[in-house]
């Protein structure tokens, strides 16, 4: 088991390295001159050249990459060109915010999704099931900006129960930020709920086909024993994996939701960095998101292996 984890970690490291090269490569291709953006259009060429040297943009590409990657691994992520603040602090702050939002969303959709998916699978082809399945398809189809804006319109504008903007100052604690996390959390949860529900339903249906469910029933076991001991244990395994994988999305993929609500998360930071051509910030943000996604996949694999005795022994 430990060997397995170690091997996968090594894989993650290798892939991260490859990704870092890609990230670096792509950012180099970005059009638009950093120096123009910082110094303005009317800056002299000499000033621009000086800035370039200062930023290290005149060195050769491999050297730039080398400097960057060593810095990254050691924790020195450079300085943001647009805000002159250390990138590390910026990213960590935003990461914390994203984790808070992700946590709220996860708590909303994971348990409910599993429960509803189980119900839908057990009552396959009944009205409940159709309602849940089709409904979940509907929610998947609703883009986050649509559902987010509608939620704002209903709960903030019309009813005034919750704040319309979720901008929080740096360093806000979870409890203080919580009211502002509700609406974006719900927006995220709507999409996540649909996925978890469908996944659970599909795996429940799959498990119900199996012979051991028949054995359990014909052993005369009461329904709740059959459902919880036999069915759930096996149906949950793929679902839990999917949930673990979604952590990657919750950290770095919520760009739209964050934009709609003005929430200072990691996704918006990435967007900001791209728009401003702020290379150090962009590189760091992307790398962090990618590494977290890969780690989330790793956790999913480990959980799956742990839950599945046929692999473990």
């Amino acid at each position: 088991m430990l060997i397995f984890i170690a091997r996968r970690l090594a894989m993650v490291c290798v892939m991260s390295l490859v990704m870092s090269v890609l990230v670096f490569g792509v950012t180099q291709v970005l059009p638009g001159d950093v120096t123009t953006m910082v110094l303005g259009q009317f800056a002299t060429e000499a000033a621009k050249q000086e800035l370039r040297e200062e930023l290290g943009l005149t060195r050769s590409l491999p050297v730039q990459y080398g400097t960057w990657i060593t810095g990254f691994v050691l924790g020195d992520w450079g300085t943001s060109i647009s805000s002159q603040a250390p990138v590390f602090n910026l990213v960590m702050e935003r990461l914390r915010n994203s984790l808070m939002l992700g946590f709220v969303g996860l708590m909303m959709f994971a348990p409910l999704g599993i429960l509803l998916g189980l119900v839908a699978g057990l009552k396959q082809n009944s009205w409940t099931d159709h309602f849940l399945s089709v409904g979940s398809l509907g929610f998947i189809g609703l883009p986050e900006f649509v559902s987010g804006l509608i939620l704002i319109w209903v709960f903030a504008v019309q009813l005034g129960w919750l704040p319309a903007s979720s901008a929080i100052p740096a360093g806000t604690g979870f409890v203080d930020a919580f009211p502002k996390l509700i609406l974006p959390g719900v927006t995220v949860a709507l999409v996540g709920l649909a996925y978890v529900l469908r996944m659970t339903r599909a795996s429940t249906v799959e498990v119900l086909r199996r012979d051991y469910v028949r054995t359990a029933r014909l052993k005369g076991l009461p329904v709740r024993a059959v459902v919880f001991t036999h069915i759930l244990r096996n149906a949950l395994t793929p679902t839990v994996t999917v949930i673990a994988v979604s952590i990657g999305w919750l950290v770095g993929g919520l760009i739209v939701t964050e934009s709609v609500f003005g929430y200072p998360g990691l996704g918006r930071l990435a967007l900001f960095a791209i728009q401003r051509r702020d290379l150090p910030l962009m590189q760091a943000t992307t790398m962090v998101i990618v590494v977290i996604t890969m780690l989330a996949n790793l956790v999913a694999d480990v959980i799956y292996t742990y839950l599945n005795p046929t692999i473990r022994y």
Partner: peptide, 19 residues
């Protein structure tokens, strides 16, 4: 696997910004 590791919107953003 590599391409699937990155949240799609993020990747799209980076690529569109490049080209």
């Amino acid at each position: 696997d590599l391409l699937l590791c990155i949240p799609s919107l993020l990747l799209a953003m980076v690529l569109i910004a490049s080209v």
